[in-house]
Structures are given as structure tokens and as C-alpha cells.
Measured scan of single mutants.
Amino acid sequence: MLDDRARMEAAKKEKVEQILAEFQLQEEDLKKVMRRMQKEMDRGLRLETHEEASVKMLPTYVRSTPEGSEVGDFLSLDLGGTNFRVMLVKVGEGEEGQWSVKTKHQMYSIPEDAMTGTAEMLFDYISECISDFLDKHQMKHKKLPLGFTFSFPVRHEDIDKGILLNWTKGFKASGAEGNNVVGLLRDAIKRRGDFEMDVVAMVNDTVATMISCYYEDHQCEVGMIVGTGCNACYMEEMQNVELVEGDEGRMCVNTEWGAFGDSGELDEFLLEYDRLVDESSANPGQQLYEKLIGGKYMGELVRLVLLRLVDENLLFHGEASEQLRTRGAFETRFVSQVESDTGDRKQIYNILSTLGLRPSTTDCDIVRRACESVSTRAAHMCSAGLAGVINRMRESRSEDVMRITVGVDGSVYKLHPSFKERFHASVRRLTPSCEITFIESEEGSGRGAALVSAVACKKACMLGQ
């Protein structure tokens, strides 16, 4: 009897593995994704193909990295998701002549009506938060230079001027797309009239992360975010950046690689679950690469896999709870928690219980395998993109072996128990001629924006502006 049951459990697990095998990517698959990513990057950089390229390769006008001589107080704003952060950054000489960066910050959550109302409502709310922060720190009387981390696709015309191309991540505030974001912020500050600010720089969160990590390690020339969304930036040779005049030196390019796949480059790798996630998203047909990796989508992918296993009578005796059938019910943090389970399955059992399920031991094991399959594919897909960037940098610099540091931020990278190990191992397999160091950014977005502002202020002083 026991043997029969054991055989049935083994057969069930084997069927589960057959279904989950769809998520496995072979090294040849990853090399294919990497080569296609490089081709799209090239198209994004070139003037004649930029418009139709899915990977936009947006110039950021960040050319210099901090040298350690900029000092002063800077205000930093960070808008990239449902939370908005205001930070005071003091850049100065530390002990023994070292450079020191001290920060104080406060988080504000953005109400739904500000995210989806008008641009005026959104930026009025942001300036209200700045006003509140300055009151708390008794700094209303000071006109501070301000660095703005704005983590949406922007076409820069200068370091302090950028046109919002399109909202992502659930934002829909009308009247912002096609307009200068810094102008919208300046107008809102003017409307309030109770404080003055000098907006000197606007950067993407990947750029802010790279600059913040450069402060720790001067070989950091790539910034990457794996959180709600997924994106990367890197220092490109100016001669390859056709959208900006000049051939000397390097400029940081914001790849906006989340949109890779929007022209069909990933079609052969998309599964039924991916198509369902895409169809029910706020932007169907867009940001397809990001939807395979980002935390906004990972939990939902797992939920759809679990429903398939229920329908195949391989999980929960073929019956799903009402909660499990509800879109968004299986949160991405559950994926991390399930994979963090120590082996007694308590954590998995508790999560499934909150979803109205009474799982068996085998159910718990199957749910864990589903989570591992989805998150491992995410790590491997992400590795193909980064390997594409790094191999490109090595080739354009004609280096036999390139040493490089990548600064990384984002909740999936930082909080998932195995993502970074799987990701690092896969990147290294795909970049055999590179020695890569990964560092995690601390308060990256805010500190990085302030350091970019410090560079901009120093330049302005040198130019006598």
C-alpha cells in the first residue's frame, strides 16, 4: 500500500517536472537572447534605426563620474514606483581627507489618484512632500541643488532636461508624456511658492545606482535594477552614441532593455503563462523582457503555473481556492519566502493557508518547484541581457580580458534567497573573457542622484555659470 502511494507521488512529481521543464533555458538559448539583445542595442544607438529599435539606448548626458572633490548639501528625489523618497545628502571631506556622503531620508507613498490623475496632481503632491521634508529638517530658507531620480523612459536633451516617452509600472498621470519632466517639477514648486529649489540633474535609477557604486569602486561602469521592473545602464564610447554629437570619451546610456521583445525577438521563448500575464497587464505587448524578470510579474506567473497544475490534477487534489483564482493573489514576496523555507515546509504551508488552501507535504514541495522554475528562468533571462552589455563593452574597448564592476539594486536581487547566485553564475558562463565584480548599492537611487548633481554643480562652477 505504502509502495503504491510512494509510486503515485513519484509519478505525480515526474509529471510536474515535465510541465515545469518549459521554463528551462539551455545555454544556447541564452546565447541567442544575448546576441539578439546586442543587435537591438546597436539599432538603438544608431541614428537611422533608433526610432524602430525596441531597446532605445537613451543617452543620459552623464559623462563624468564623481571624483571626490564636490562638497555641499544636496536634496535628492526618487520616483520610480508607488513609494517616493526625499533625501538630504551631505557631501563633504571625511576623516583623513576621505570623501564622505551622509544621508537623511523619508519615504512617502503615492496615492492612487496622483498616479493615475493628471501630471499637475502628481507633481503638486511631490512638491508637497518636499515642503514637508524641508519643514522637518528646518531647511526651507536654503535654496538647495536638487537631483531627481526618475525611473521611467526619458529622452534627455541635457542633464536637466528630459522628455517622458511613456509611463510604465502602473503610472498613468495624463499630460506628462511628451513633456519635460524637470519643467513639470519646477512648475509645481513655483505653484507652491513656499520654498526654492535648483533642479540641476535628472537621472534614471540605473544611472543613480551606477554612480553610487562608483563611489565604492571606481571600476563600476554598469548599473542595473532588478526590482519591480528590470533595466540597466553602462558607459558607452561616445563615438557609438549617434544621437549625441561628439566622439570623445564616454557617456552613460540608459538601455531601457525592459522593452526588448516588443518587436518579436522573444516570441519563441514566451510561454502561455507569459501571454496571460501580458494580456492582463496595463501595457499589453510592451516591456516583454521586463515581464519575464521583474517583481511586478513574478508572483503572478507562479500563480498561473499553480492553476495549470491544479487543472492537471497534480496539486491540491485538483481544487483551487477562490483566493488562488484571484489575479495578483500570489505576491512576489511569497516566491522569495517559499524558496527561503528551511525544509520543514512550515513557511510554505503558512503562505498557502493564507490563500485558503490546506496543502499536503507533496503540495508544498511542488509549489516550491514552481517558484524555483519561474525565478530561475528570470535570473537566466536577466543574465543574457547583462552578458550582452558586458561583452559589447569588452569588444568596443578591444580588451582581451576586461575587469568590470556592476552596481545592482532592486528588491528581487536583494531579497530573493537564490536569485543573485543563479544570476551571477549564468552571467559568468556567458562572459568567459571578463572578470566581473557585483556590488549592491546602498540607498543607491538617492545618493547617486545627489552625486550626479554634485558633478553638475562642479561643472557649472568651472564653466562660470
Rank of each mutant, 00 (worst) to 15 (best):
T49I: 08
Y234V: 14
F334C: 04
G44Q: 06
L451H: 01
Y273D: 06
L386I: 13
L58A: 01
G246K: 00
S69E: 11
G68Y: 10
E96V: 12
D158R: 05
M202N: 00
R422E: 14
Y297G: 05
D3M: 09
S411M: 02
V203N: 03
K140M: 07
F316Y: 09
K140E: 14
I189T: 07
D344W: 06
Q465L: 14
G223F: 02
S336M: 00
A456D: 09
S64L: 15
R43E: 13
R345V: 09
E279F: 12
Y273K: 06
G294P: 02
G97F: 07
L415F: 11
F330Q: 05
E22Q: 13
D158G: 06
W167Y: 01
R397G: 11
S212A: 05
G44M: 01
T326I: 14
M402A: 11
L314G: 09
M381R: 03
A21Y: 11
Q286T: 15
A232R: 04
Q286H: 15
P359I: 11
L270G: 03
P417Y: 13
T326Y: 15
R5M: 05
A208Y: 01
F133M: 07
E237G: 04
V226K: 02
A378G: 08
T60C: 10
V427L: 08
I293C: 00
A114L: 12
S69W: 14
E300F: 02
I348P: 07
E52A: 08
K420E: 13
N180T: 05
H137A: 08
L88F: 07
L88M: 06
L88H: 15
N231W: 00
V406N: 00
E17R: 12
V181D: 06
L292C: 14
D4Y: 11
L324I: 10
R392T: 12
N350A: 14
L288Q: 13
L79K: 01
I404E: 05
V203Y: 04
T118K: 02
M210Q: 10
D409M: 03
N179F: 08
L463M: 08
Y108H: 01
L306V: 06
T361F: 09
Q219M: 15
E96H: 07
M37P: 03
S131K: 04
G261D: 06
C461T: 12
R394P: 04
G117K: 06
R447A: 08
M121S: 07
F23N: 01
T228G: 00
H380M: 09
I19T: 07
S151N: 04
F260E: 05
Y349L: 12
E272T: 15
R250S: 11
I130E: 02
P284F: 08
H380C: 12
Q24K: 10
E279G: 14
F334M: 15
V181A: 00
E51A: 12
H137N: 06
D274M: 04
D409G: 01
E256C: 01
H218I: 14
F195H: 09
G183H: 07
I390Y: 00
T228E: 00
A11R: 12
P284E: 14
V89M: 12
T206V: 00
L164V: 01
F330Y: 09
V277R: 03
